[in-house]
Amino acid sequence: MPNDVTALQLVLGGDPALFAIVWLSLYVSLSAVALAALIGIPLGAWIALTKFPGRQGVIVLLNALMGLPPVVVGLAVYLALSRSGPLGAFGLLFTAPAMIIAQTVLVTPIIAALTRQTIEDLWIEYRDELTAMNLGPLGRVTALIWDARFSLVTALLAGFGRAAAEVGAIIIVGGNIEGFTRTMTTAIALETSKGDLPLAVGLGLVLIAIVIAVNALAWTARRAGERLAG
């Protein structure tokens, strides 16, 4: 990336390297949120609706895991994906999938914990009706998830915010390789280390703008959906 221009000029000028970085950031973080949703929403719903010994402890743990340190997650995923690690044979270290895996680990507890709370609240409201309809466990879960969909969007956004903002995990497992695993946040870290603070700040502003745009999009979709479905 040329050094003598600001990030704004890069964006306005349609710099392909910058677009590649933005695209990779979105691809990694959105993939991680999608995977985390596939795991975290059913998991959170299951915990919300199931009584089992140690449930309170699991809820406390899940809430605590929302604050998992990215560096620790990055290191754990690094050790797992390294050629010398248990999953080394897949050769995933220093690739985009490695970054997706690390962010999925980070985001899943957030989505699961928020889903658990949302579904539990909704279940209190729906319990009598759904029981009276003689609905089985699967029917209950799908009905609750579907009807909580607008609140769950907020959980997904919280997860996306976390993924898009973190650098500690992906810089370890991705390696910040130019053109392959360089994302907005790792590029910001790199430009800071090169002492190019204006470019780093510019990239930071671009990142914030993207996060705001994604949130605005999701919010608009949520409002439109709520108007139709209440």
Binding site: E125, Y126, A143, A229
Partner: peptide
């Protein structure tokens, strides 16, 4: 039909 029926968040 409960005294305060819960309406599903749908049409």
């Amino acid at each position: 039909v409960f005294q305060r029926p819960a309406m599903l968040r749908r049409s």
